[in-house]
Nucleic acid binder design. Structure first.
Length: 263
DNA sequence: AGGACGCCCTGTTCGC
DNA sequence: TGCGAACAGGGCGTCC
């Protein structure tokens, strides 16, 4: 479920540990993740250079290759990174392993092979080509309000639409709506200005808290929806059994008491 | 435009 | 208890 907070955590991992180390060999084991990029292009781009910096847009991580453009990573729903020395963790599912000449390694790991490994000359152009909206953490209040203007659909659909706001997936969309007290199927047009402002504040709060939790304790407060998701889950505030429904094919959890449906 | 749905993918969970 | 079906969900494409 790598969404914005998870990808931001991975970005920080790379930034903290994996920069400025000469890259030796890179092995690609799951070519499927490369899309149209030939594995040879990956080897060539990485060999002999080093990671020089990182950037993130929505759920995409960009790693700058000194003098050779950028490596682009998307983690699908099960992707993650391991930075390690010595024994390779979870070997079976490592789709790509970068060997640094100092004996350390960075592995892109994915059980379900839904994701993307690619090269680009420019993150900005990549973002444009993919048609991604503004990064969810970079959106200002005014811009957020304008994104909600004249929209016809349900609020959950809009928040999950990467072309509008990039970074929120199923899980954190539910989390944000829970904190804002907004029912996931609320038509955007039925939301008052106060609703929209509250939603914006909750979006910022939840993302910031989630990043903090992932980096430090790997755990969100118990008052969050996320630790309580699931068929037998209950609202952390009132203990009401969570409601469960499907919104555009994604399982949605919400509190029927705190997130009342608006007509 | 928006949304329902299917596909990809494979480990896990569900339900009979 | 066991086993096949359904589920999980990010992104994309198709269809209405």
């Amino acid at each position: 479920m790598p969404e914005l907070p998870d990808v931001e955590t991975l970005r920080r991992l790379v930034s903290r540990k994996a920069l400025r180390q000469v890259i030796g060999h890179t092995s690609v084991r799951a070519r499927k993740l490369l899309g149209r990029t030939p594995a040879q292009a990956i080897y060539k781009a990485l060999h002999g250079t080093c990671f020089a910096g990182t950037r993130r847009h929505g759920k995409y991580l960009f790693i700058r290759l000194r003098g050779r453009g950028w490596l682009v990573l998307h983690f699908g729903m099960t992707g993650r990174l391991y930075y390690y020395t010595g024994r390779e963790p979870d070997r079976r599912y490592n789709a790509m392993v970068v060997d640094f000449e100092n004996g350390r390694h960075l592995a892109y790991n994915s059980r379900r092979k839904l994701g993307l490994i690619e090269l680009t000359d420019s993150p900005r152009q990549f973002v444009e080509r993919k048609g991604l909206g503004a990064d969810a953490l970079a959106v200002g209040q005014r811009q957020f309000l304008s994104l909600l203007e004249n929209r016809r659909g349900k609020i959950k659909g809009l928040l999950m639409n990467q072309g509008r706001i990039a970074g929120l997936g199923n899980v954190y969309t539910d989390e944000v709506l829970f904190h804002a007290g907004v029912h996931p199927e609320t038509p955007v047009q039925a939301m008052t200005r106060a609703d929209r402002l509250r939603l914006y504040r909750c979006l910022r709060k939840v993302l910031a808290k989630a990043i903090e939790a992932r980096v430090d304790v790997h755990r969100l407060p118990r008052s969050y929806l996320l630790p309580n998701r699931g068929r037998d889950g209950r609202c952390p505030r009132c203990h009401t059994p969570l409601g469960r429904l499907s919104v555009s094919g994604r399982t949605t959890y919400y509190c029927p008491v705190h997130q009342r449906r608006k007509a």
